[in-house]
């Protein structure tokens, strides 16, 4: 699919969700289960993207000290935990990755 078509569809559905209940006010209620489930969207989607980036090298599971992205990712997890700061986390992870790539 063409990237512009993807963006257009992605934009349309996003707008549709924002518009939906403002427009349908009084005619539809968000079910409690869905309300609850939505809290888990960010950790689930983001972790599903992060895990293969860290643990797979060329599509193969690689849990070893030679996996620089895994080590840099773990450093970023620790940094995020203590700093709670996006920019600091990115900088720490990139610094560890570049340092490991340089020395290994």
């Amino acid at each position: 699919m063409n990237i512009w078509l993807v963006m257009l569809l992605g934009g349309l559905v996003t707008f549709g969700m924002r518009f939906s209940l403002i427009y349908l006010f009084g005619r539809f209620q968000v079910p409690e289960t869905m309300r609850r489930a939505l809290h888990y969207v960010p950790p689930a989607v983001l972790s599903a993207i992060i895990a293969p980036e860290l643990f797979l090298s060329d599509g193969v599971l690689n849990v070893s000290l030679g996996n620089t992205r895994l080590l840099a990712g773990l450093a970023a997890v620790l940094t995020a935990w203590f700093s709670r700061n996006t920019l600091v986390t990115i900088l720490a992870g990139m610094a560890v990755l570049l340092a490991l790539q340089y020395w290994m």
């Binding site: 960010p42 950790p43 983001l46 972790s47 993207i49 992060i50 980036e53 860290l54 992205r69 840099a72 990712g73 970023a76 997890v77 995020a80 935990w81 709670r84 700061n85 996006t86 986390t89 990115i90 992870g93 990139m94 990755l97």
Partner: peptide, 13 residues
């Protein structure tokens, strides 16, 4: 690699 790092920064908190 900064993209997955951004996701880590979003998910941990």
């Amino acid at each position: 690699f900064a993209l997955p790092l951004t996701f880590i920064a979003m998910v941990v908190p």
